[in-house]
Amino acid sequence: MTDRVNEDDLHAFVDGSLSDARRLEVEAWLAAHPADAGRVQAWASQNQSLHAAFDSVLNEPLPIHLVRAARRQPARTPYKAIAAALAFVASGLVGYGIGLVSDRSAVNPPLASTQPFVRDAAIAHAVFSPEVRHPVEVEAAHAEHLVSWLSKRVGTELKAPDFAVLGFDLLGGRLLTGESGPVAQFMYQDGIGRRVTLYVRRAAAGKAAENHETSFRHVTENGVEVFYWIDRDFGYALSGQIAPADIRKLAGAAYTQLVGHAGGG
């Protein structure tokens, strides 16, 4: 005893939106109507093909210009007053870090005085460190491949600092797109799941000469601590949501291990 099954039911069957009772009826219908069963099977495989063709986009590194666009303050005048009143709060996955592009700069050093790559580093930390399934593109199990791959793309021999004595192990890394070209991000995690990221970028050609400073700098934005330094034409930023004293230790270790290394020192 099966009610007549219509075209909409067949689609709803494919898309899993039927009630259990109706689904059983449609299954019974399909068993008795091979032509419909064939179409339903073809439609289901279309859905699978779509996922097979496009799901990889979900795991692509987000272009930094889109990350910025998503975080830009609305500036158009009719909304300006409202926008200024909007509170930035931690929401869901990646609520922090946005202070770097918010009006919080009133209490923190203005953006202009911070290296742009530091802001990018904090954004990249905020975007990827909460990822559960795909925090990194290449896992630490393939550390050698990871480092050589990122080195090749960034254009110099890189090294992932070792934080084992401080309780943080290398989780892996990914390649990002920064304004001056490819950027490497190494991610570390400790025993209780806290994550820090090291962001390494090479200055755009012609800019390197301006960056002789190697002093250590620190900015805090909405709970993301960023310690950064410049070493010749490389900028390094270590970001994390852990106590400043802890991340300072990590940054110190990275600095010691890395200074003079990149660029063939």
């Binding site: 692509e60 987000l62 909007l86 709060v89 990646v94």
Partner: peptide
């Protein structure tokens, strides 16, 4: 005061579509 939603988490799916 209204919380400003974060658009970042929607980026991967917007890009896929």
């Amino acid at each position: 005061m209204r919380a400003r939603p974060d658009l970042i988490e929607h980026l991967p799916r917007l890009r896929r579509y």
